[in-house]
Design a protein around this nucleic acid. Structure first.
Lengths: 168, 168
DNA sequence: TTGTATTTTCAATAATTATTGAAAATTAAA
DNA sequence: TTTAATTTTCAATAATTATTGAAAATACAA
């Protein structure tokens, strides 16, 4: 396979993976494009490469900046903004984990804590089952949360290395 | 908060979490309902509780069966099918991980392996950057894949216990 | 078998989510 | 300042995804 075809396929694969995991396809494609670019790209270049509109490009670049996956880069003598992606995969994984934890897991955790304490007759099987499930979920989500904290503080090789010792 | 309100909130929270992670909201809500039910439920009961159509209920129950998160239960003397969810959270997490690995990660892994070997002049910075990124991604996705394998074979307490030792 | 309950399918429709494109706002050079 | 380049916003529209509901298929009891 030639590079051009590989590039096309990578962008579309990354986009599909993103949408399977609840991430806007264009955002994932902009990310893919920046991931494999040797140089920072302008909004124009991104629009051009992906055949998307200025509004779409702009909005998704902003989102990638919010996720800390991309940063602005100044090119001396050029008024345009350029964008470059973080290239270290472990760092990317940590930033995604950090944001999903903050945006999606913590809010659920807060709700579950409330729900553990519902009022009602615990002799009713449905109420007992509900409370038991909330307790189990609280415990599990708490452990997931701590696991992410472990990951956020860890070095890649150490993290995987220690994990893999489990299997032996 | 009373049980009825808690139940409503749990179903909607689980549904929202699902859709943030690329899972159909109704499917997540059917799952939530079954997770907290002390007894297996029929399609009719699910339709009623969630105010959804028969087609929708049926399709999402099938999907949950495909994900191995729910199984059929026979009620003697009743022709209807009843459904009960797996209640052990660690087991649920493993089954979800197993399916997402099979459906989403393995295909990406296969594509990335191809892409690592694109043809082109490696003195061109973009081509060099592309290949380098594919190598990094392959290595990372391989480790993620192995991590899931570790999880699939592990016991919950052992898994988290060992992980948490990392932080101390 | 035949009739009835139950499940499945799927075309039509609705709801949601993403995208466009042009106007408004902002920025910075002249 | 004024002007022009650039970025942002957002209402309109398009694309995608989910849902309905009724007909078809299936399963089962009589």
């Amino acid at each position: 396979m030639h590079y051009e075809e590989g590039k096309r396929q990578f962008i579309q694969t990354w986009g599909r993976l993103g949408s399977e995991w609840g991430i806007n396809r264009s955002m994932a494609q902009v990310h893919a494009l920046l991931l494999i670019s040797a140089t920072p790209l302008s909004t124009e270049q991104i629009m051009e490469e992906l055949s998307i509109s200025r509004g779409n490009a702009n909005m998704n670049i902003r989102d990638l900046l919010d996720w800390n996956l991309v940063h602005k880069e100044l090119v001396p003598g050029d008024r345009k903004e350029y964008f470059r992606a973080e290239k270290d995969i472990w760092e990317i994984a940590r930033r995604i984990a950090k944001e999903r934890k903050r945006r999606e897991i913590e809010p659920v955790k807060n709700v579950l804590e409330q729900l553990q304490a519902v009022e009602g007759d615990k002799n009713q099987p449905d109420i007992a089952a509900f409370i038991q499930m909330m307790e189990q979920l609280n415990s599990f989500v708490g452990k997931m949360d701590t696991s992410i904290d472990v990951m956020l503080k860890a070095d890649q090789n150490w993290f995987f290395g220690t994990l893999f010792k489990l299997i032996k």
